[in-house]
């Protein structure tokens, strides 16, 4: 042959140097992602730091339900109502999206075949790509009158409206990830269980779900992260009024929506401006914790 196997194991050829080069490039790209995240964190911390150090009363910030930053005499910076708004909407959204997305994932992954499956998968991807402002618009113009009609309440922009909208929004992404988790379960597990006489439901519930447990949990947690961070749809569908909700028909305001709505009208560097960045830091920390948890869960903290 023209290319005999060499026994000179010390000779470093082009392939060897190529390998080292690729390792370096991959390392740099990996590191740069981390650098960007840290950069963003430093930026929002810097913008919000003045407020945290000088003006902020941490107890009041987290426990006061009054958010009145534009009051000229005694501005109030309490985000409890905003946290309640975000939490209630996200919670309701999960109640909507978990059954929907798990059901859809099981149907796509376990029951449908061939063209149906392909079609559904494309459809799900398509749903995931709808811009959030469109969802918010649907909440404003379709859900709003619908809720007023059905439940006979004065306003339709509420926890219920935003929860359903956000639930429908996160469902496609959760479906997509959950379906991947189900697909990652090897077929031989299913065959082994089927051969013992297990029904399809038993196979799914007793074998596939436990095997895909980490991936499914990860899907749900990513949905939570998405819910916390979503801005436009909740801004339009919640009613945007500072309020600790007593029922699902109460309008609320979300943390993210507050930043989006108010940042443009504040003077750069003012207390209000810095307070909004403090909310940003808080959101960043929450999403970071959720995503980290999701990541650890997906990997299955076996060694921890």
């Amino acid at each position: 042959m023209n290319h005999p196997v060499t026994t000179d194991f010390d000779r470093r050829d082009r392939d060897w140097y190529m390998d080292k080069l690729v390792q370096l490039v991959v390392f740099v790209s990996g590191i740069s992602a981390i650098v960007f995240v840290i950069g963003i964190f430093i930026f929002i911390t810097k913008e919000g730091m003045g407020f945290i150090l000088d003006t902020m009363d941490p107890v009041e910030f987290f426990t006061s339900p009054y958010w009145e930053p534009s009051d000229e005499d005694a501005p109030e910076y309490g985000i409890l109502a905003l946290i309640a708004g975000t939490a209630s909407v996200t919670g309701l959204a999960l109640l909507v999206s978990i059954p929907f997305s798990l059901g859809a994932a099981v149907f796509i992954g376990e029951f449908s075949t061939g063209k149906t499956r392909e079609f559904l998968k494309i459809l799900i991807e398509l749903l995931a790509a709808i811009p959030s402002v469109v969802w918010g618009f649907i909440g404003l113009t379709i859900m709003n009158p619908l809720i007023i009609d059905i439940f006979d309440v004065p306003v339709g922009l509420s926890v219920l409206n935003a929860g359903i909208i956000l639930g429908l929004m996160t469902a496609p992404i959760m479906t997509s990830i959950a379906e991947d988790a189900l697909k990652a379960v090897p077929d031989r597990y299913r065959e082994a269980a089927e051969a013992m006489g297990a029904t399809r439901w038993q196979v799914i519930f007793k074998v596939v779900f436990p095997a895909a447990k980490n991936g499914l949990l990860g899907a749900v947690l990513l949905g939570v992260g998405r819910g916390f961070g979503e801005t436009m749809a909740v801004l339009l569908a919640t009613g945007h009024s500072v309020n600790i909700p007593h029922s699902i028909f109460d309008p609320v305001r979300a943390l993210t929506a507050t930043i989006a709505a108010e940042l443009g009208e504040t003077a750069v560097g003012s207390d209000h401006y810095q307070a909004l960045f403090t909310i940003g830091i808080f959101l960043f920390a929450i999403t970071f914790i959720i995503n980290l948890t999701a990541d650890l869960v997906v990997r299955g903290v076996r060694n921890g």
């Binding site: 196997v5 060499t6 026994t7 000179d8 194991f9 010390d10 000779r11 470093r12 050829d13 392939d15 060897w16 390998d19």
Partner: peptide
């Protein structure tokens, strides 16, 4: 083949042999 596998410089060449 005359090389201590722990100290050789190109482990890929070893594996391809």
């Amino acid at each position: 083949a005359g090389h201590n596998v722990k100290h050789l410089k190109n482990v890929y060449a070893l594996r391809s042999a």
